[in-house]
């Protein structure tokens, strides 16, 4: 069964078309990274799943329940870290968790939950004095109440230092190993690469890709860069290479040429360089950085 099913969902705020027909299925037990630049529609999609906002058109279902009609049943089995939330400044971490436990009718003990997120030392301090990282940890602990079947985390690493981000990854992995479906959003591909089974990339309210990271790389294809050392850089090399099929970019740094090109164009590039009178002393291939891969999708190059 699908943990999340979104079918042709549209949403407009005023004259901004936030979502223009999003379709997405997330399987049970999967760790799914939901990626896109800020303002692409990630939070709107998540807010529709949580019934914070209502779709103008289309259907959304979570854990087999309709997102609009059976939202309480969904939230009963889901742990949520929302975007743009605030805590209750006058309540302590323990009181926040008690509230979550009581609302969920769960039987957790606040202390071990706070231990998992590394906040047990601040258990009886009021949230008003917390740093943004501590707030994020407390909100995450609240999301873990009641051993949810699904975790929906909207930009969970925002506010966390690198250490906190690593701990978050550990928690996600532990939960996933226990069978929990994890759906989380980020605007940084590097953060999701290590933990995600699949990622979906959203751009301007449309899902432009859903695949594994490897799948995305293959699809972009040209994602690799050919690095060539030559004894002498020929005149007009950039112009000449770029005019050939499969070559996307050429940059020159001293005697080093960096050529973004399709895999099957590499031999042609080497031949072309020799033809222009250069001697190739060395060459290697670099895998495209994740940022480039991400940019390829979000800037509409694919």
């Amino acid at each position: 069964m699908a943990a999340i099913q979104i079918e042709d969902v549209h949403k407009t705020f005023g004259d901004v078309r936030a979502l223009r027909g999003v379709d997405l299925d997330v399987d049970e037990g999967e760790v799914f990274g939901f990626l896109g630049p800020n303002g692409a529609g990630k939070s709107t999609t998540i807010n529709i799943l949580l019934d914070f906002v209502r779709a103008d058109q289309g259907d959304a279902a979570v854990l087999g329940h309709d997102a609009r009609e059976e939202s309480v049943a969904i939230r009963d089995r889901t742990g949520v870290l929302p975007e743009g939330y605030d805590l209750y400044d006058r309540l302590t971490a323990r009181e926040h968790l008690r509230f979550a436990i009581e609302s969920k009718d769960a039987d957790n003990d606040p202390y071990p939950l706070l231990e998992r997120v590394g906040l047990e030392d601040a258990i009886d301090r009021k949230a008003g004095g917390y740093s943004s990282g501590m707030r994020q940890r407390l909100a995450l602990a609240m999301a873990l109440v009641g051993d949810p079947d699904l975790l929906i985390l909207d930009e969970p690493t925002s506010g966390l230092d690198p250490n906190g981000a690593r701990e978050l990854r550990d928690i996600v992995e532990t939960e996933a190993a226990g069978g929990t479906t994890v759906f989380f959003s980020s605007h940084i591909l590097g953060q999701v690469e290590a933990v995600c089974d699949r990622v979906g990339i959203i751009r301007d309210g449309e899902l432009v890709a859903v695949d594994s990271i490897e799948g995305l790389r293959e699809n972009v294809g040209s994602g690799s860069t050919l690095v060539v050392e030559v004894d002498e850089v020929p005149d007009d090399v950039a112009h000449r290479l770029k005019s050939r099929d499969g070559v996307e970019s050429v940059s020159v740094d001293g005697n080093t040429l960096r050529i973004g090109c399709a895999d099957d164009a590499k031999t042609m590039v080497i031949d072309e360089l020799e033809e222009m009178g250069s001697t190739v002393s060395d060459f290697s291939t670099e895998e495209a950085p994740l940022e480039d891969l991400f940019a390829a999708y979000t800037e509409g190059e694919v």
Binding site: L50, D51, F52, S71, V72, A73, R75, D76, V80, L81, P82, E83, G84, Y85, D86, L87, Y88, F99, A100, S103, K104, D105, A139, M142, A143
Partner: peptide, 14 residues
């Protein structure tokens, strides 16, 4: 206004 309503409604409260 502050956003704590999102916490309130992330939990199974109607």
């Amino acid at each position: 206004e502050t956003g704590s309503l999102k916490v309130l409604l992330s939990l199974p409260n109607s």
